[in-house]
Design a binder for these strands. Structure first.
Lengths: 191, 191
DNA sequence: GTCTATAGACCGATAGAC
DNA sequence: GTCTATCGGTCTATAGAC
């Protein structure tokens, strides 16, 4: 359905994956700027030097953590693009991002909203590519300001609502059901 | 229409207001954890000691910055509660938060989403009070999970969408018009 | 209300042994 | 791949002069 973009970087080693997982947890809890390499090392039970063996700078860790999150969205987009009809594609896209937001409700919102990561993504080719493809799936060919605002609202609503205190005591299934239903309605789709 | 809550704290002096304004700008750009007192002092053209003369700790600055933002929402809520009909009240609420989000599109999203500020608000009485009253205005008496998710989505969509790259090149008026229209539709109101 | 100067902890990052 | 030890710099916060 479209030329698949190359992955954002080489696959992560097991040790790198552990570093990124710890970093994402801490980024969500303290923000990117409030998370130190010492905290990441402590979370893993190793020393800072061991972390520096996997990544040469903190910025590399931040970028890898952001791209790991982005790649989850990329997978959803590519699965949707492989659908047989535009109706099914849109359905897969909306279900996929809702699932992702609920599954990662304690991390996704805060990480993607962090100003440092927003800055990293501002000139990030893969980020732009994935977002454009997601928008195409959700609202079709560029519908001007209305389509852009609508997509931005849906993405912000989905990834942001899951961290709101109002929904803190809802279990994952309830949250997912409600999010999906309201997201569909927002796009003017049949429930 | 309801018992007005007391303000979150004493009014700010002119010097304190300058500190908080500088802090909010930097929080939005670098995150709360990534903003130092030195950066705030530099932004104001004074030394750190001068800033410490206004606030005794960095936490006090963070809290005051968060409460300043919260109080803007409180003003919107109280103006809406003073309406003569529930229909007018809901209209004022939705218009007010959209206006607020657009007016402060470069700060509001990142500040209210920052994990450190989310933590401050987790046990914050005024925050809870204002959010509950806002929910009551938007979706009426507690409608269970559906009403909670709906309110969380609308708040996240409004405050989060304004920072999304998709809308970066839209002028304030266009953004406000589209946001308002889509927010109304999301609540099932006539356009 | 602003300054200089400083204390003590922690920051990101590196060197080199095992 | 992990460690100890260390570098220079920045952090929050305070003391005290003007």
């Amino acid at each position: 359905m479209s030329t698949a973009a190359a992955p954002a970087g080489p696959p992560l080693s097991a040790a790198q994956t552990r570093v990124i997982n710890a970093a994402q947890t801490l980024f969500a809890r303290h923000g990117v700027g409030g998370t130190s390499l010492q905290m990441i090392a402590d979370e893993l039970g190793v020393t800072k030097a061991a972390v520096y063996h996997q990544y040469r700078t903190k910025d590399e860790i931040v970028l890898a953590a952001a791209e790991t999150e982005l790649r989850r969205v990329q997978v959803v987009v590519e699965h949707a693009e492989a659908a047989r009809s535009t109706r099914q594609a849109r359905d897969r896209a909306i279900t996929g991002i809702v699932d992702l937001a609920v599954e990662r409700r304690h991390t996704v919102g805060t990480i993607l909203g962090d100003p440092i990561i927003v800055g990293f993504f501002a000139d990030h080719d893969l980020f732009r590519d994935v977002m454009l493809r997601l928008r195409h799936l959700l609202v079709g060919e560029d519908a001007g300001a209305e389509g852009r605002v609508r997509t931005a609202m849906l993405i912000a609503a989905t990834s942001g609502a899951v961290t709101h205190p109002f929904v803190a005591d809802l279990d994952d299934d309830t949250l997912r059901t409600q999010l999906l239903q309201l997201a569909r309605r927002f796009l003017g789709l049949p429930a």
